[in-house]
Amino acid sequence: MVATRDTKRMFADELEAMMARMPLSKVRVADLCARLHVERRVFYYHFKDKYDLVAWVFEQDHLAASENAQPYTLEFYTESHRRLWARRDFYRRAFEEDSQNSIYRYLLEFSIQANETALRRHLGVPKLSREMAFEARHFAHGNVGSVVDWLRGDFEATPVQLAVCIFSCIPEVLREAYRTQSEL
Rank of each mutant, 00 (worst) to 15 (best):
L15E: 02
S80N: 06
F95L: 10
Q181T: 14
R137L: 00
V27C: 07
Q113C: 08
C169R: 11
W85C: 09
E79H: 08
A114S: 15
M132L: 04
E14Q: 02
V160P: 04
R137T: 00
N68G: 14
G145A: 14
K8N: 11
H141F: 12
R92H: 13
A69T: 11
H62V: 15
A30R: 14
Y91G: 03
L36S: 05
S111Q: 06
L184W: 11
A157K: 04
P171S: 12
A20C: 10
R35P: 13
D6V: 12
R137N: 00
L15N: 03
S80A: 13
A163W: 01
F58Q: 04
L128H: 02
V38K: 09
T4K: 01
A118S: 10
F155D: 02
E59W: 10
P23L: 07
V29T: 03
E176V: 10
F47P: 02
L32N: 06
R88Y: 13
M18S: 07
V29N: 08
R179S: 09
L128V: 09
L84D: 03
L174I: 03
F47M: 12
F167I: 12
G142I: 04
I170C: 04
F134C: 07
F139Y: 11
Y44T: 06
R5Y: 14
I103L: 10
L123W: 05
T78N: 06
E109D: 14
V148R: 00
E183T: 15
D13C: 11
E172G: 01
S168C: 02
T117Q: 10
L107C: 12
R83S: 07
D6Y: 00
F90E: 05
K8P: 05
S25L: 12
P171R: 02
A118F: 10
A118H: 03
R152K: 15
H46A: 11
I103H: 04
C33R: 00
R41K: 14
Q100S: 09
E67T: 04
R179K: 07
A86V: 11
R28E: 13
M10W: 03
T73D: 00
E156Y: 15
Y91I: 11
M22S: 13
P171A: 01
E67M: 09
F110T: 07
L36G: 02
P159I: 01
A12Y: 02
M22P: 06
M18C: 09
N115Y: 01
R120G: 12
R105Y: 10
K8V: 01
L128M: 04
A3T: 12
F58N: 00
L24T: 00
L63P: 04
L108Q: 08
Y106L: 05
E96A: 02
I112F: 03
I112H: 01
G145Q: 15
L53H: 10
V38D: 09
Y91C: 02
L151W: 04
E79M: 09
F134H: 11
E79R: 04
E172D: 02
A118W: 02
V148F: 05
E75N: 07
Q70S: 10
V29Y: 01
Y77P: 04
E176S: 05
A136C: 06
M10F: 06
R21C: 01
Y44S: 07
H46S: 13
V2Y: 09
K48M: 08
R130G: 03
W56K: 10
S182W: 09
V29R: 06
Y77R: 00
D89G: 13
Q181R: 13
V164F: 03
R152W: 14
